[in-house]
Design a protein around this nucleic acid. Structure first.
Lengths: 94, 94
DNA sequence: TAATTATGTAACGCAATAGGTTACAGTCAG
DNA sequence: CTGACTGTAACCTATTGCGTTACATAATTA
C-alpha cells in the first residue's frame, strides 16, 4: 500500500500546466473545450479526470493522456485502500 | 497511441484467476463480497473495474490492486483515444 | 427422468458522478 | 467604479456501480 496521500490530479494541472504557462482557468477551460465549472471542479478536487478529459489534456498541453489517467488511478487507489479493512472478502489464492 | 485493442479486464480475470483455480462465477462473487450479477457484468465486459473492486480482487487473488486498475485504465484510454479526433481542443503548449 | 446448480440477463431501484447552464458573491487590476 | 477572473450553489441530464428479484437455459447429479 502506498504510504503517502497522492495529490489530486487537479493540483498537478495547476502546478505543472496552468501556472508555468500563466494560463487562467477560464482560458484553459475554453482551450480544453469544457465548461469553466468542469475544469474548476477538477482543479479544486471535486471531480476526477475522465478518460476523455485525459485526452483533452494531452492535446492542450502536449502530455500523455496515460499519465493523467495514471495520476487519477493513484489517487483513487489510495482512497480505496484506506477502506480495505471494511471489505468482507475471502481469499481464493495468494 | 496504443496500437492494439487491450482486452477488457473481465477477460483477464477469467483467464488468469477463475479458470486456473477452477472457481465458478458464483463462488468468486461470494468470495469477493459482491453480487453474482456484478461479477458477471465485469466478466462479460458490461461493467468496469472500480477502485473498490480492484482492492477486492487484490485480496481474493493475492494480486496488486494497482495492476487491475491499470488494466482498466489501458482499456478506457484506448477507447477514449479512438475519439480523439472528435474533440475540439486547442493547444496551449507542447 | 427429475432435481439441482450455474450462468447470463432483463427489469427494477438507489446513490454517485461527469457534464452542462445559469446565477451570484467575492477578489483584484485598471 | 468597471470589468475580468474565480469559486460555487442550484438545477438538469445521462451514465454507472451495485443491489435484488425473476426468468430461461444449460449442465450436472441423484
Amino acid at each position: 500500500m502506498r504510504m503517502h496521500n497522492p495529490p489530486h490530479p487537479g493540483e498537478i494541472i495547476k502546478r505543472l500546466c496552468l501556472e508555468p504557462l500563466g494560463v487562467s482557468v477560464t482560458e484553459a477551460a475554453q482551450a480544453l473545450g469544457v465548461s469553466r465549472k468542469t475544469l474548476s471542479s477538477i482543479l479544486n478536487a471535486r471531480a476526477s479526470i475522465s478518460p476523455e478529459m485525459a485526452v483533452r489534456l494531452s492535446i492542450a498541453f502536449g502530455t500523455s493522456a496515460e499519465s493523467w489517467l495514471n495520476h487519477q488511478t493513484q489517487y483513487d487507489l489510495w482512497h480505496a485502500e484506506q477502506r480495505r479493512k471494511l471489505l468482507r472478502v475471502s481469499k481464493l489464492a495468494g
